[in-house]
Amino acid sequence: MTQSRFFSSRSATRSSADSFSRGLVGYAFAAAATLTLAGLLVFFWAPQDADQGMRQKIFYLHVPLSIAALCGFIAGGVMAIQYLRTRDSSWDLRSYVAIHLSLIFGVAALITGAIWAKTAWGVWWEWKEPTLVSFLIVFLLYAVYQPMRFAIDDPERQARSAAVYAIICGAFVPLNFMAVRLATSLVHPRVLGGAGEMPAEMRVSFYTSLIGMGLLWMALWKFELTAKSVSMRLGKLRAELIS
């Protein structure tokens, strides 16, 4: 309930709650099925890594998590543009939830990334891996999104500033990757090869798990949107009842 006062209640209509929840169940089932299939492929079909063995399997979790988080951040920026264009506060809510959710995915990606670094290179953190380093910088930037938002009292202003910040950060993501890559590749060889170098079984398992993660992101996004909008509507109805 505390969350609800940060968003304009004008978006909390019945129809918006309905549109948020549309497809939620479908996404949830699809995510569960795809991720189960991905798990089976990863553990029983994809070949063992010659050096790292079983421990390399975390790759199938870490990389899709990172990609889902990054896509979610960018999507949050696109939704923010949509908010500034339409001034429809439901787009603000969409953008907020996308970034919030991607931040959680980002935490998971960083933790799994550290575990993977430990298994692959024997250290918890690897500065020579530009993707990981870029991801950390992006994560730090988005971690300020929520504190910034909630340091503004007026909900409309909050939505606008958050949208602008989301757009700036969205533009930052690719440029930052480029800069960090440029800074690293001059000195060190790339640690990770591209997906093209993987054997076919690995590749299929990886893409399955990536699709599963994308579906999971969508399902959780829709779930949180629905939950937020329902609780806002509830708060509004309660307020009307009291007055």
């Binding site: 930037l141 300020v144 504190p147 910034m148 340091a151 009292d153 700036i168 930052f172």
Partner: peptide
């Protein structure tokens, strides 16, 4: 401009600036 209307300006400005300026620092 983003931070001036918040009630945590002194905290937010460095937190927002440092990551955003990192690529420039690299260069």
């Amino acid at each position: 401009a983003l931070a001036t209307d918040t009630n945590a300006r002194e905290l937010l400005v460095p937190l927002m600036s440092l990551p955003l300026l990192t690529p420039l620092l690299i260069g």
